[in-house]
Amino acid sequence: MYAQMIKTAHKGVHKREDMSPEERAFQDKIDADIKIEPRDWMPDDYRATLIRQIGQHAHSEVVGQLPEGNWITRAPTLERKAILLAKVQDEAGHGLYLYSAAETLGETRDELVRLLHEGRMKYSSIFNYPTLNWADIGAVGWLVDGAAIVNQVALQRTSYGPYSRAMIRICKEESFHARQGYHAIMKMAFGTPEQKKQAQDAVNRLWFPAIMMFGPSDADSTHSEQSMAWKIKVKSNDELRQQFVDQTVPQIEYLGLDLPDPGIKWNEERGHYDFSDPDWSEFFDVIKGNGPCNVDRLQNRVAAWEDGAWVRDGLLAHAEKKAARKVAAE
């Protein structure tokens, strides 16, 4: 997952009569569900919007290593430690695919990383919440990756070919993570009273942040229309959120945990669960940088980058020397 509040690079939806012939042909392809490929003509705004979305998604994968990495050294068994390491390694790999997808649009990874570190690009709000007990690791896999999958399954149909293909690959791994996460929290929920307490605490804390991952409600989502017309986005925030709630509530019930929101109730007429709105002021605070972990997360990433500068410089210098020696020998 994990792109939220992506500003389309201009306001409103382009009207067909205002389109250039190239743009009209482009829109026809989109409407016919033909993927756009890197060398195809595309409107500047489409390119810019995609770079923002894919870049934010990539940053989320990379920053997302931190809350889970927080428990790798405390994982309670060798198997759990191996599973968690493999998962976090997968996330870093997703970051790589996505940065590569952004590169096909002409934006380098270094530039995107620079924008992140300067606070000019974001990552998903969810990673600004802490992981406080071991059950959080199960809950993150189950709820956070679960929410990501709902979003990303939809994005498999996105109009930009490299992004769509990255999503197909990523979804397979995310599904695996969600199952492993659920399995981990099952052990906690069905374990000792103390373990169950941890599981309940994790669900209570992470429920609303998880449903915030889909972004603000459609009524307040000002940037969606053009993204929908371009099929960068294929389902609305509220549709995706409802789908997530519908699939997750029975899973919470199966665990024998209390529902984290007293407003959750099956609505026979709608054929969906009703649920309470999250506190959107909290969401906007987190987006603005005031979440519980924003400062620490970014500082950690910046420190990793700055402390590693000598390594990158050293390896680059060696590669240049090696290439020069090869030329000299020829």
Partner: peptide, 12 residues
């Protein structure tokens, strides 16, 4: 080291 390496490839 997880999440703190000099470059993404090294994290992996």
């Amino acid at each position: 080291w997880c999440g703190h390496s000099p470059v993404l490839e090294e994290d992996i």
